[in-house]
């Protein structure tokens, strides 16, 4: 997999970052106005997986390394939160509001710890080796969760993650998710626009040169890996109460692939690209699944077309259009 196509920050360069983010926020706020619960449910999924994909893009778009095992941290976050959840449940099977939030908070730190251990090894490598090692660790964690029945309930997964009554309402849970994902987005934005965020871009472009600037390359990569893992864990924590259960599949390579797909579709060149990718991917999946059982075939074809014809994703295409128009405009003056 070659380095991502578009320079992060181009939305900002065009003065579009804020308007695009605001427009998306407004649209997300309006979703529950649609009749029926269905689209609210789908949009909750869009947001959670979008956060997961954005965390993946810290590694891919910003640091220039592709991970095929990022779902491990999504899954670890989901499990950490779910396991605390079931322990905090009352005898009656319900959970208090405070305990519920406590269980959500368990996701990121545990995922961060897992990312610290995995990252310690992965950051020693780059390119395809980094990708393969991340895949191997992802599958390893999947296998541990899958087979350690006494601790994780194995492939039965953990069921009955029924949030407090207020959040059992799809719209309320949606708005909770929207609030958390928006907050996470703002923090991620801060990070990608920080000196550290730009050091990540230098590592993406030229690790050797960065080292000669006095940058401890592996240490910076490891920190980024842990940050990415903890945001994946936050997304995972939101997933359990949403789907009322967690299962080992959340850690598997197919789930990792979802983040890769979303990022390729939306564009790796900006923070919001993967979120847009999630919108497209998840909506498409919802629609396609209504009509056929051939979702894998459909998404496979789409990814193929994007890789071949739209290497910068949807946002990359828009950028090219903007550039073309701008230079056409220059020609007239």
């Amino acid at each position: 997999m070659s380095a991502p196509e578009v320079q992060p920050g181009w939305l900002a360069r065009h003065g579009l970052a804020r308007p695009v983010a605001m427009a998306m926020l407004v649209l997300f706020l309006l979703v529950p106005l649609l009749p029926g619960e269905y689209w609210t449910q789908v949009s909750t999924e869009v947001l959670i997986l979008g956060l997961f994909a954005m965390s993946f893009n810290l590694l891919y778009g910003y640091m220039g390394q592709i991970s095929f095992g990022h779902a491990a941290f999504f899954g670890v976050g989901a499990y950490a939160s779910a396991m605390l959840f079931v322990r905090l449940k009352t005898a009656g099977g319900s959970i208090g509001m405070l305990d519920f939030f406590l269980s959500l908070l368990a996701g990121p730190p545990v995922a961060a710890f897992a990312a610290l251990v995995v990252g310690f090894f992965c950051v020693r490598l780059t390119g395809i080796y980094f990708a393969m090692l991340s895949l191997a660790f992802g599958e390893l964690l999947f296998y541990i969760v899958f087979s350690w029945y006494s601790f994780t309930k194995g492939d039965d997964g953990i069921q009955g993650l029924l949030p407090p009554l207020f959040f059992q309402d799809a719209v309320n849970y949606y708005y909770l998710t929207l609030a958390i994902v928006t907050l996470a987005f703002l923090v991620l934005w801060r990070i990608t626009e920080s000196p550290f965020g730009y050091i990540m871009r230098t590592l993406r472009d030229n690790q050797r040169r960065a080292a000669f600037l006095g940058i401890n390359v592996r240490l910076h990569m490891l920190i980024n890996f842990v940050i990415a893992g903890s945001f994946a864990g936050l997304a995972g924590a939101l997933w359990g109460p949403f789907s009322r259960s967690v299962n080992p599949g959340l850690l598997g390579w197919q789930e990792s692939g979802v983040a890769v797909f979303m990022t390729l579709i939306g564009g790796a060149g900006s923070l919001i690209g993967p979120l847009l990718g999630s919108v497209i991917y998840t909506l498409l999946q919802a629609v396609v699944k209504m009509y056929t059982v051939y979702w894998p075939l459909t998404i496979g074809t789409i990814i193929l077309l994007i890789v071949l014809f739209l290497p910068g994703g949807v946002l990359g295409l828009i950028e090219k259009r903007l550039k073309a128009r701008r230079s056409a405009g220059d020609g007239e003056t």
């Binding site: 320079q7 920080s194 965020g197 730009y198 050091i199 910076h220 920190i223």
Partner: peptide, 24 residues
């Protein structure tokens, strides 16, 4: 750093020199 702007190239080198590379 080929995909970054000229100013960003220099700025990141300045940040590294200022020991601000960890500033998140």
């Amino acid at each position: 750093f080929v995909k970054m702007s000229v100013a960003e190239n220099v700025r990141s080198a300045v940040h590294a020199q200022m020991r601000r590379s960890f500033s998140i």
